[in-house]
Amino acid sequence: MWRPSGLFHVNYSQEIAFVQTPFQWVMLVLGLFVTFALPLFIPLDALNFFIKAFITITAVLGLTLLTGNCGQISLGHTAFMAVGAFVGAPLLNQGVPLILCLIMAGLAGGIVGLIFGLPALRIKGFYLAFATLAAFYVIRFILIHYFGGVVGHNVPPPSILGFSFNSDFRIYYLIASTCFAMTYFTKNITRCKWGRAFIAIRDHDIAANTLGVNVYFYKLMAFFIGCFYAGVAGLVLSIYMGWASVDHYSLTNCIWYLGMIIVGGMHSISGAYLGVFFILGIEEMGIVIAPKLAELFPQLAGSMIGAVPIIFVGLVLVLFIMIEPRGLVHRWEIIKTSIRIFPFSN
């Protein structure tokens, strides 16, 4: 974050403090205010975009921890989301309080993630990526065959203390609050011992082990925590959709999520926000343009709506990784530095 020169930390607790400068306080309060006032001013389409964004951010924050910070690649993230949804939805149906359902969904996602994270103790890199991909298919199979199938579960609008989240407008507040709570949680993990252990493991797990980091424990914990986010995000998504179905949790989405953390520079919270808005923005562009293209090429109209957003995002990700594999945050740092040292930059 932005930090003026002349600001020095004289002790460790300042260094890891949640908010470090008055400016950041201002930004934080302002940001929260804008977020919560937003629905009053924007049209429903835009509101839906923000809802989608906040759900995605919740999921992507989990990947930021698991993949960005701890270096464990997971191609099964959306499957863990589906687990959260498929566990949470029936509970909601039975009238279990919303908060409890969210926690249960998170725990379910986390525990399943932990189980399928076990191979990570012995493998990494391509192997782990493919093992989690296999996990994706296995979980999907199990959900389809034993937990309600392709049809899935109906999700009633939940309520807290009699306040029912029965419109998109109201759901927005639920989702934004969840997202911020999870963001706060992420920030706290990354600034404590666990966050540092994750980073040590990402940079070199064997070396981390010799330095006294319990690699097995922290790898599994990274899976548990990362998939906890997935579980929560999965349930929240099904609440928004009013329906929990495995088709909402596709491999394509998982690829986009990982793309988002690359775009955002892998390991920072601000990167996750940036990546999500960037990629979703591109997707939205595809969705808007598709009908217009369909008019131009009527013979292709049938598949235009489905295909164009995917083509857009896929192409942008390919180009992005080729040109700026270190992400937007990296580019942003460079720009920021060159502004700060202005006449002397090159």
Binding site: L75, I255, L258, I262, G314, L317, I321
Partner: peptide
């Protein structure tokens, strides 16, 4: 990760 996501994308 970049390699994987690039090929998948």
């Amino acid at each position: 990760l970049a390699v994987i996501i690039l090929t998948l994308a």
